[in-house]
Computed example of a mutant assay.
Amino acid sequence: MTIELGILIAIGGLIISFQAYQLNKTKDLKTDSQESAELKAELGYIRKGVDDIRIDSKANEKQMAHLSERVTRVEESAKSLHKRVDNMENKGVEHIG
Rank of each mutant, 00 (worst) to 15 (best):
H82T: 12
K58V: 06
R84C: 13
I16R: 07
K62A: 07
V50P: 00
K62N: 10
T2A: 10
E75G: 13
I46F: 07
G49P: 00
D52M: 00
Q22C: 04
L39C: 00
R54F: 14
V71C: 03
D32G: 13
G13Q: 00
L8Q: 06
H95R: 08
A10S: 10
M64N: 04
T26V: 04
I11H: 00
N87T: 05
E4F: 09
K48M: 04
G44I: 05
A20D: 10
L43N: 11
K83H: 11
V71L: 06
D32R: 10
S36D: 03
Q19V: 11
G13I: 00
S68N: 04
E94R: 13
L43E: 15
K25S: 05
I96L: 14
D51Q: 03
K83A: 15
E42Y: 13
Y45L: 15
E89F: 02
N87C: 15
R73I: 12
S77M: 08
M1G: 13
I3S: 14
V74P: 02
K62F: 04
A20I: 02
Q34F: 10
A78D: 01
I7E: 02
S80L: 15
A78T: 07
V50S: 05
T26E: 14
G12T: 08
S80Y: 09
I53W: 04
H66F: 05
Q63W: 03
N60I: 05
S77F: 01
I15C: 01
E35S: 13
S57D: 01
I55M: 02
M1W: 15
A41F: 05
H95N: 07
G44N: 07
Q63Y: 03
K83I: 15
F18G: 12
E4I: 10
I55W: 02
N60T: 10
K91Q: 06
M88F: 01
H82L: 08
I7V: 07
A37H: 06
K27W: 12
D86M: 14
A41Y: 07
K58T: 04
I15A: 07
L43G: 07
L14P: 00
L81Q: 13
V71I: 12
N87Q: 06
L67I: 06
E35G: 06
D28R: 11
H66D: 13
S17L: 08
G44R: 04
R84N: 14
F18Q: 15
H82C: 05
K30S: 10
